[in-house]
Amino acid sequence: MNLFRLVADLSHLASIFILLHKIQTTRSCRGISIKTQLLYVLVFVTRYLDLFTGDFVSIYNSVMKLFFIGSSCYIIYLMRIKYKPTNDPSIDTFRLEYILGPTAVLALIFNYKFTFLEVLWAFSIYLEAVAILPQLFMLQRTGEAETITTHYLAALGIYRGLYIPNWIYRYFTEGGAIDPIAVVAGIVQTALYVDFFYVYFTKVLQGQKFELPA
């Protein structure tokens, strides 16, 4: 564990609390893509199967894994049941098969071992890299976002961004160790946030509303 990864994980936690806060206080999931949230459930469930195989890393690691699985399922409950009327499927139109198909194929080809757990692990890494696309697509379509929603996305983006210095740090402190699947997918994932952060820094953090140029 190093500071980059710790702050990254805390930022990931923060993003979930920001999202829960947004839904609970506005009593609405307007502006949130349920497709992206469903993909996150799939990401956590397929990656954290090692909770049940005895590959114990640390209490911290296991607690975080359980939290990510639990909170992502809870968010789906809020969106699908409790605040269902505020969920507008007509603007959440990204086709999930464009994500699930290619990531499944990639996982079958590029994995560390052709076993059930390892293929699912690789799938979860590729899936996480692009899971934000339905949300960004929705943002692009509507051209605007509530400020709290942009803080959610910023926290997620910071989490991903900080994993990169974490890998650089680990490379130098752990004898040249590198996890190419995680690193390549992580760089792709971080790159997807670049446009968002441009608008976030130039508008939202200057006190303006998040609005994309027409």
């Binding site: 990864r5 994980d9 590959d55 690691n61 560390y112 974490n166 160790a177 590198i178």
Partner: peptide, 10 residues
């Protein structure tokens, strides 16, 4: 697991 892919990250 020795090959550098211990999956110890979240």
């Amino acid at each position: 697991d020795g090959d550098g892919h211990s999956h110890d990250e979240l």
